[in-house]
Amino acid sequence: MNAALTTSIIGVLIAGAILYLVRRDHLHGSYALWWLAVAAASLLLSAFPQAVDWLGHITGIYYPPILPIIVAIGMILLRMLKMDIDRSRSERQLRRLTQKIGILEQELMEAKRAKASDNVLTADSSARSKTAQVIPLAKSGDA
């Protein structure tokens, strides 16, 4: 087994795993696009490992194999930054939703209570108007 075969197997495995996961549709739009690009890069590099040497040569890097590692780490850092930005946005939305739920729940309870007391009042007054015909001296003011 030579080095070229090893890298191509690793590259194809990574690309295959990503493609499989993206195909299962667990990723939201732009995330899927990003990972498809990673899969493509992984496939390309495994198919043409000499591209690394060529890129190293034209970018003036003395030890070309370090180039994909540097690029990969840079990409990972950017990706993590984006993740934290997204998480902050989600956290903000979650907090505001939580607050809104609390406020709406309170209003719902208030509305229910107002309705219930309305019903009691109308039921009570109609009951009293009926009894008033029978007993003229009914107690008043306790509604």
Partner: peptide
């Protein structure tokens, strides 16, 4: 107002 989970002192005050 009952918050479904703890938002901390500021989160509650902001509510």
């Amino acid at each position: 107002i009952d918050l479904p989970y703890g938002l901390g002192a500021w989160g509650a005050a902001q509510t």
